[in-house]
Design a protein around this nucleic acid. Structure first.
Length: 517
RNA sequence: GGCCCCAUCGUCUAGUGGCUUAGGACGCCGGGUUCUCAGUCCGGUAACACGGGUUCAAAUCCCGUUGGGGUCACCA
């Protein structure tokens, strides 16, 4: 067979839980390396654990990768529909593993083990208690052919173990960490590679597939470091090439342990729901353990590929810092056009019940992250339609204020309400008296009523003139803004008024005044 | 506990023996802008874990200590 020098990497998640941040990072680095080296990125599903694997999780992996824009060249194609075959799903490759297990068995490099599960468990805990590393004692490693055949008939529970041929040092060159050495005697004894039905365990399946799929570089989390010597042992026994390894540091929670559910959201899907942009999430994650050596921090996927070097990866783990993610996401949001920003916000507005989409018959409800501007919308509380143009004007007011999309709804909700519900104390600026606030509101009402054209310069001119007269602008602007937004904090009063419209502005000013009477 | 990995501001990091009184970013603090919050601009706070070597010279190389993490399944 012709030797293939092409870079081939794989991302091989197991569908036993939602696609999480750590997986995003592993996938991203594999993707970046593949693209950088003009290689192939393979997506393989490691679902040999039938108990824990679920197709719903596989769908989540695929959906998430698509959302992130991490496209793969080979691998499972459909969104985990049950029944559709994929040679990139380990559960569909049983025959292949069987072949390899037989080969190892025949060559004496693996053997049947009939040891009792409970007993092994017991001895493990005993060894641990004594402070010893748990280790399989090798009871079944020297069974004669006759004994084996007898036990095979008698016992209906057994496994297949890899025989560690000799005490030696296994050494490999990690592309991130350099030379790494393990003693075979530290592995923990002959380890299980397949179950009774010859279904493979992780280390076997992984090695076989990486070989069959001609994977050249294995880029994975540091938690797999201790699996590497086992895998090299299998590769040596099988006489197959040992791929290059690169172990990425872990992403840590605030307590410095491996990031997990208890540390906040770990599922990529949740970040999508919260309103993080895929490009921002990727940008943030790539910086967690890699940087190009300069001060640059904002990278598109394309730019990341360009600048990426595996050798520049960090060796130590990085704490997942949500503040930085928020900052980066805010930067990306700011760089969107008003149209793009509105499209991004709409699903969140719908989700929070502020608006409803009126679809034409041939349209499907869109998922987070996109919505056609042509769709028409309806405000349930006001029982009126709203154009996408107007939605754009509203949300644009907050484009540079928000860090995540889900914040938008609670900022703009006052635009969609029929009546504002706030405490009248909100209308008071500093130490103004009730009479003064009423007076201020009255003057605003008068100015607004007398405007000939509802345009920002006009409104500004009228209002600011009055405000300047007061000396303290807040005496006019605060009651005005509070009246039309019903909020302590919002976008600028004039900007809000412009978008709100003269009729609604007046109505709200009058309602505010009534509150005080 | 064994083995493996790691160690620069609170966090992400630059730094590959002299360019370093250690640079950037987030956060935080102060100030300008501003009706508010946010944003933005300006400024500030803050780190080479420790101890030995090597060297004319060490955050950078070596050793040890300490600390942190990972891993020790018929999970992956």
């Amino acid at each position: 067979m012709k030797k293939n020098n092409k870079v081939r990497v794989r991302f091989a998640p197991s569908p036993t839980g939602y696609f999480h941040i750590g997986s995003v990072r592993t996938a991203l680095f594999n993707y970046l390396y593949a693209r950088k080296e003009k290689g192939i990125f393979v997506l393989r599903i490691e679902d040999t654990d039938t108990e824990r694997s679920r197709s719903e999780y596989e769908s989540d992996i695929i959906r998430s990768l698509k959302w992130l824009g991490l496209h793969w060249d080979e691998g499972v194609t459909e969104e985990g529909e049950e029944g559709d075959f994929s040679p990139y799903r380990q559960s569909e490759r049983a025959d292949i593993y069987k072949r390899y297990v037989h080969k190892l068995l025949e060559e004496g490099k693996a053997y049947y083990c009939f040891c009792d599960k409970e007993k092994l468990e017991e001895s493990r805990t005993r060894q641990k208690e004594k402070g010893l590393p748990p280790r399989y004692n090798g009871d079944c490693s020297a069974l004669s052919k006759e004994e084996r055949e007898k036990l095979l008939k008698k016992k209906d529970d057994y496994v297949i173990r890899m025989r560690i041929p000799k005490e030696e040092e296994i050494e490999f060159e990690d592309m991130i960490r350099g030379k790494i050495k393990f003693e075979t005697k530290e592995i923990g004894g002959d380890f299980v590679i397949a179950r009774k039905d010859f279904s493979p365990l992780y280390n076997l399946a992984c090695v076989v597939d990486d070989h069959e799929m001609q994977i050249s570089h294995i880029i994975r989390g540091e938690d797999h470091l201790s699996n590497t010597p086992k895998q090299i042992l299998i590769q040596e026994a099988l006489g197959i090439e040992v791929p290059r390894y690169a172990h990425l540091p872990l992403i840590l929670g605030p307590d410095k342990s491996k990031l997990s559910k208890r540390h906040a959201a770990v599922s990529a899907y949740e970040y999508r729901e919260m309103g993080y942009l895929p490009e921002a999430l990727l940008n943030f994650i790539v910086l967690l353990g890699w940087n190009p050596g300069d001060d640059r921090e904002i990278y598109s996927l394309r730019e990341m590929i360009e600048a990426f070097k595996l050798e520049r990866c960090q060796k130590s783990g990085a704490i997942f810092n949500i503040d930085k993610l928020n900052f980066i996401n805010g930067q990306y949001l700011k760089n969107k056009t008003d149209e793009e920003f509105a499209d991004l916000c709409i699903p969140y507005l719908i989700n929070s019940g502020l608006i409803e989409a009126r679809f034409k018959e041939d349209q499907y409800p869109p998922a987070y992250g996109g919505m056609q501007a042509k769709t028409t919308y309806f405000i349930p509380e006001r029982k009126e339609d709203i154009s996408s143009q107007r939605i754009k004007e509203i949300v644009a007011l907050y484009k540079e204020k928000v860090k995540i999309l889900s914040e938008v709804s609670k900022e703009v909700d006052f635009f969609f309400k029929k009546e504002l519900n706030y405490d009248k104390d909100l209308l008071f600026w500093k130490k103004m008296t009730t009479e003064e606030v009423i007076g201020s509101l009255d003057r605003s009402i008068e100015i607004i009523s007398n405007l000939k054209k509802w345009e920002k310069p006009n409104i500004e001119k009228g209002l600011m003139k009055e405000a300047e007269k007061e000396g303290d602008r807040g005496r006019v602007l605060w009651p005005f803004r509070a009246a039309i937004t019903g909020k302590k904090a919002s976008a600028g009063p004039i900007d809000v008024a412009v978008v709100l419209g003269s009729k609604e502005t007046l109505k709200r000013l009058k309602m505010a005044k009534n509150k005080l009477l």
